[in-house]
Simulated assay, not measured.
Amino acid sequence: MTGSKRVRVAVVFGGRSSEHGVSCLTAREVMAVIDRDRYEVLPVGITPDGRWVEETGEWDDLAPGTLPQVRVDRPAFSWDRLRDEVDVVFPLLHGPWGEDGTIQGLLEMADVPYVGAGVLASAAAMDKPFTKTVFSAAGLPQLPYVTVLPWEWEANPGRAIDRIHALGLPVFVKPARAGSSSGVTMVNDWAYLEDAVEAARKLDPKIVVEAAAHGKREVECAVVQDLDGMPVASEVGEIVVDESASHDYYDFSAKYLDGSSQNVIPADIDPTTRERIRAYALQAFDAIGCEGLARVDFFLTDSADGGLVINEINTMPGFTPFSMFPKAWEASGLAYADLVERLLQLALKRPTGLR
């Protein structure tokens, strides 16, 4: 611990991924509710090219449809300060080079407590095909999918295309390790498949192609551990995209830029399905080895068997006051500021290293 009477928390945000701006928004909102009587906050930004800087996390009013960015002209921040000056780190990074176990490994090496999942869970949850392997082993229902590794697409694309065609139309082509629907294309005509693959490969040379969920509804459940370490599931929410908006699915613009989506909490579903979702969310949390927090995403389809399938798990979900994760907990009786406090307390109680 530092000599300060207050706990010193470094809030790390920005980063090298396509979700840089979303991370900045998250950090701004989290820092606004941290109790400054108990905590001294140190904002640390990571620029899009990977430089660490002393930030403020405050931006002037942003134009509609734009996101903030870590400023490259800020003073440099040395990693050593995390070890020497900080009591706990809140790594509010989304996507690769942050949510994927990279910063978690750095903090473990430095013996610094931090909020959220550890190295293995963070890495496995970021890699969609590995997540699906874990979920399959846990017996969780999923949609059919195909993983295309870099060598296969480069050496034998015809084989990959044949495997993808077996899924049937439509399909979603995704980078294997990205979030917020970045690089995702919905393909309704095989003539556009190769373009969709190349678009995804711009973000990640490894891709995953998933069969579409017919008649789907997107529902989500948040999970947080209590102070004894027991995972608890929130109320279930549903993502509803305005039918008049020009979105075929819940893409990046619908999530963050144009206001065409809304969170409906609680979701309009029957009690049995609601409890299945909450049970599956806890099962997924445990299967991947999560700690602290997660958001688990599902599809409800129009199939005769009830049609509940798991989509993915996010170990550091969007965290603005309007994001599904905190809104689901607000609807479950845990306010935004109390949620932030819970996560910091969990991090301070948890040892680094093997556990």
Rank of each mutant, 00 (worst) to 15 (best):
R6W: 08
F13T: 02
S17R: 02
S18E: 11
S18V: 09
H20V: 00
H20I: 01
H20M: 04
G21Q: 01
T26E: 08
R36Y: 09
V44Y: 01
T47S: 01
T47D: 02
V53H: 01
E55I: 01
T56G: 08
T56P: 10
D61N: 14
P64Y: 05
A76Y: 11
S78E: 14
R81W: 10
V89I: 07
F90Q: 06
L92V: 15
L93Q: 03
G105T: 07
L106A: 15
E108Y: 03
G116F: 01
S122R: 00
A125C: 14
K128R: 11
T131N: 07
S136T: 15
V148E: 07
P150E: 11
D162Q: 15
R177K: 14
A178F: 06
V184T: 07
V184S: 02
D189I: 02
I207F: 09
A212C: 14
K216F: 14
C221V: 01
Q225R: 12
Q225D: 12
M230A: 14
S234L: 00
S234H: 00
E235P: 10
I239H: 00
D242L: 07
S246E: 14
H247C: 05
Y250L: 09
A254L: 09
A254W: 06
K255T: 02
Y256F: 15
Y256D: 04
G259P: 10
S261R: 08
D270A: 09
D270T: 06
T273R: 13
R276W: 08
R278N: 03
R278S: 02
Y280I: 00
I288Y: 03
E291P: 12
L293G: 05
A294T: 01
T301W: 00
D302F: 10
G306L: 02
G307N: 07
L308H: 02
I310V: 13
I310M: 09
I313W: 00
P317N: 01
F319P: 12
P321H: 02
F322P: 14
W329C: 03
G333W: 06
G333S: 04
D338I: 11
L339P: 12
V340P: 12
R342M: 11
R342W: 10
L354Q: 15
